[in-house]
Design a protein around this nucleic acid. Structure first.
Lengths: 210, 210
DNA sequence: TTCACAGCGTTATATTTTTCACAATTTAAA
DNA sequence: TTTAAATTGTGAAAAATATAACGCTGTGAA
């Protein structure tokens, strides 16, 4: 398979979200590239290019058949079976993410959480069994978890990441305000909210266009 | 001023975070481009290019003087005076963001929050006065708020965005899983966690490299 | 003092990503 | 049946972004 870029994958996932709404909520059966584009912040050419990448073909007359396209995207993006995700750091943010995420994705689910606070371990938090961080490695290995979310303070984020990677995790979504150092082959997405909000504020005042 | 790209701004903000740590925690006075690069996930050429953009000059012998560079970045990025930010949607996520953010940024502060739940309005939540969403427009106008965070369910995100924009907001950080439609000149950053986690999971299993 | 070196600033080159543009296709109306 | 209109798929062009390359400068060792 040809390598496919970060941005493209993100757009394709967004198309799916839009398609699901068109299908389930609005009962549509077909959609044109420009409609998909305007509902997902892309251009119509971009949509056509992206769908070309996953090999789905529409018709000039009716556009894309929604159900079929959803299936194609699913085959392309989704794991073969349900996949468990771990979350480390059960603070406000961690808990918010668990509540917000679980139930929203068909194949992915946060199944295991870790913390250092004794009050928060060996319990069930929003349906997830919680463990002490010292047990991180064996638990992650045993559950064959490949994707993890880090919501710990910045001081411990790197060491948590190291342990996750040693335990076999290949993808990390990091909310700590620090740039993680990881080996090749490990995918990290940084979502530091402070940086983001500073950026938005910058462009709010330097809004020449976009 | 020349337009400067989204990515560049984000990197520059990240450099600042690294520089602050080097200064305050490690007591360093100078830093080389390759050090800044490895601590912020960029390349050294990128660092030099970015700093060129803001017009700060280092020396081949000692690299960049940290304090001076911090000042330059601040002049470039920061607003002239303290700036208030609004947050709409006081659920778990909203509250987590308020707690997480406030106190972390020198010039920005979430000062006003909105919700529709009567239990959550006309109170002080984590130091922020809360209002009913129906009062959004007058309050935003009165406080001259230009940047807002949306953490409401996807069904109401667009109408909230419309009102924010009518009230003069120019930058929106959107956590609702929907692509907002906004006029030209309004900057929107989408941070849907579901999309992000799906992407990370995808690259966790298709980890050819990065 | 002279030399070698390391790192800056900047221009040039390469790569990636987006947009443009248009032939081919399908429908619906004339 | 022919024509007109709209949209797809995709090569080609353009724009944006990242990397490489290199002269220049200051430092420290010989």
């Amino acid at each position: 398979m040809n390598k496919i870029s970060d941005k493209k994958i993100e757009r394709i996932i967004t198309y799916r979200r839009v398609l699901l709404r068109l299908d389930k909520q609005l009962g549509k059966t077909h959609v044109f590239s420009h409609q998909l584009a305007s509902s997902s912040g892309a251009s119509s050419a971009q949509v056509r290019r992206d769908l070309m990448e996953i090999g789905y073909t529409g018709s000039p007359a009716h556009g894309y058949e929604i159900r079929g396209l959803l299936d194609s995207i699913g085959e392309f993006i989704d794991p073969d079976q349900k996949e468990g995700i771990a979350l480390v750091g059960v603070g406000n943010l961690g808990r918010a993410i668990i509540d917000y995420f679980n139930g929203q994705s068909s194949k992915l689910e946060i199944v295991t959480v870790f913390d250092v606070n004794p009050d928060k371990i060996e319990r069930v938090i929003s349906g997830c069994r919680s463990y002490h961080v010292k047990d991180l490695k064996p638990v992650i290995i045993e559950k064959k978890i490949k994707t993890a979310v880090i919501t710990v303070p910045s001081g411990s984020a790197q060491s948590v990441a190291d342990e996750l990677i040693e335990a076999g995790v290949k993808g990390i979504l990091n909310y700590a305000p620090i740039t993680l150092t990881v080996p090749h082959g490990i995918y990290v997405e940084n979502r530091d909210m402070i940086t983001t909000l500073e950026k938005v504020s910058y462009f709010a005042k330097n809004n020449t266009n976009k």
